[in-house]
């Protein structure tokens, strides 16, 4: 019986990219000659449970989870997307008296999704105001539209957005909000990682990703994902990013 591998995607994808990942899955199977099931988890907790139970074979992971996947689960990073960033935007309501990060006060209500790297980078950007998870009120919602809604309804004082999600909000919504600061980290990014059961195909997957724009329909699939292409990741690149994430997670 043919083995079915599981492909999954970091749950911080924006709704308009969901169809792109299904198209990618179809394209990948056709060009790799392997059978994949695409599982789109709706929360980071659900995805981590699946990873812990060794159900995942190929994952487009955020940098926060990449560390655990490589160091604890034996995954190998093969490529990262070109043309997308993992930056975080710290946003307040347009009429807020807060003009700079240092104006944000203790006990501020901070809205975010459960996206761990955006929560991490967002909190780092609040540090100059002497804020940490211990002296803010964290409000975790199910998506970036709900982060915007919490700000608009006066239920949150500050919101953290993935930059792509912030850029994707409608103009009328964005006009009622005001970005305070955008991270410019650039050394961290999502990565495509191959799990132990699929490891013998790692080179083929990497090669396929790098050649994607030249292969039939590859360019269209990339566009549906919002990527310009894939770039090669070697072991040292991955280790460096993990070290960097570890410095950010350390307290």
């Amino acid at each position: 019986m043919e083995t079915t591998f599981q492909l999954t995607v970091s749950p911080d994808f924006t709704p308009e990219r969901i169809s792109g990942w299904y198209i990618y899955n179809t394209w990948l199977q056709r060009n790799l000659g392997l059978h994949f099931h695409l599982e789109m988890y709706d929360s980071f907790d659900a995805q981590r449970t699946a990873i812990c139970q060794d159900e995942v074979d190929l994952i487009y992971a955020n940098p926060f989870d990449a560390s655990m996947l490589v160091r604890e689960k034996g995954f190998r990073a093969v490529a990262y997307p070109v043309g997308v960033t993992d930056e975080c935007v710290v946003v307040v309501p347009a009429g807020s008296s807060v003009q700079k990060i240092e104006d944000v006060q203790p006990n501020a209500r901070v809205a975010s999704t459960d996206d761990p790297d955006i929560q991490l980078v967002g909190m780092i950007m609040l540090e100059p105001a002497d804020l940490s998870t211990s002296n803010v009120q964290s409000i975790v919602v199910d998506g970036y539209v709900l982060v915007a809604k919490a700000l608009l309804k006066g239920e949150a004082d500050v919101g953290f957005f993935l930059k792509d999600a912030w850029d994707g909000l409608s103009n009328p919504v964005r006009k009622q909000l005001r970005p305070l600061v955008t991270s410019q980290i650039s050394d961290i990014h999502h990565v495509l990682l191959v799990g132990p059961r699929l490891m013998e195909s790692a080179e083929d997957i990497q090669s396929l990703m790098l050649r994607m724009p030249e292969i039939e329909k590859g360019q269209g699939v990339l566009e549906s994902l919002g990527f310009e292409g894939w770039a090669e990741v070697d072991q040292e690149d991955t280790e460096f990013m993990i070290d960097l994430m570890d410095t950010l997670k350390a307290r």
Partner: peptide, 12 residues
């Protein structure tokens, strides 16, 4: 060694 620096608060 990797060293990462971020913005400190004036209090610190």
């Amino acid at each position: 060694y990797t060293s990462v620096r971020r913005k400190p608060s004036r209090t610190k």
